[in-house]
Amino acid sequence: MAELPARLLIVDDNRVNRLLLSRSVELLGYQASVAENGRVAMDMLRQERFDLLLLDIEMPEMDGFEVLEAIKQIPSLSDIPVIVTSSVEGVENIVRCIDLGAEDYLAKPVNQVLLKARLGSSIEKKRLRDEQKILLKRFATSEVAEDLQTSGFALGGTRVDASILFCDIRGFTAISESQPPEETIELLNLYYTLMFEAIDSHGGIVSLMVGDGLMALFGAPKPLDEPARCAVSAAHDMLDMMSHFNVERQAMSKPEIRIGVGIATGEVVAGYAGTDQRATYTCIGDKVNLAARLEAHTKVAGESVLIDAATHVALDGEPASKALGRVQFKGFSDALDVYAV
């Protein structure tokens, strides 16, 4: 499939300039739209998607400086490349454009060869940035993608109060051995879609997926008011979704899928761990281990959702949880209180 030509918005109050610039960029294979001042341009930018802005400075109603300032305030427009084309007098005005975020400045009348080179490079850079964003969204949750875009990437963590949720499918190995691999992948995809939905809708993020197991964080990278309550609500949604899913499976005479969930709450270190080349947003701390142990313990306890004492306290009786007594977990020196919810 051929790529669509890049769409440019030409903003200039002068008709000759608009005509000439449109013609010039169309000859270079781009699609051109025009606006006769900044206000019209902002209206168009809010309604349509453009790949680049060719912006004049001197304009009635709303000038180029005001457009540059307005664009910066709108997150969805903040990364659109702007090339200022003007015959404005004074270096200080050019500097002001660059300071306000313009990618480049081309003096009018615009030299065609220079225009071609600048457009090509700006649009290619924009395309790479867009691609990166799509990739980020695929491999990281949108919260992590957003965090990366606003704070930038740096290995290292911060201490946060969070709830950690572990979840997996009971007897998944047996299920996967009893059916063709395509069906197993299809099952996993469906399962993940449902689990992501439940986690997402309560403000959590999925930080790890291994086979049929996943780990989710509530309270990082974005802080939550009540991470424990969010995690437990997500767990209950997960169970609800699985029971609906099982009704469908039953109708197709397929075995029921059951999940186990473990939740622990407390201070953890959250951040990017790995190398500069390959890293993941994750959480480290004994609460992470505890959540994993609780999840594993669901089989022993015959419960779907197990929580630790800190999560139990944070819930403050709503929803009610049932004390199961103390359990000695591997890797923990003391026996710990466990609750089913």
């Binding site: 109050d13 002068n14 000759v16 300039n17 000439l20 001197e58 015959s87 404005v88 009018k108 009348p109």
Partner: peptide, 10 residues
């Protein structure tokens, strides 16, 4: 004057 200058230069 700015507009006229711009076009005349073109």
């Amino acid at each position: 004057a700015h507009s006229l200058k711009s076009n005349a230069t073109t």
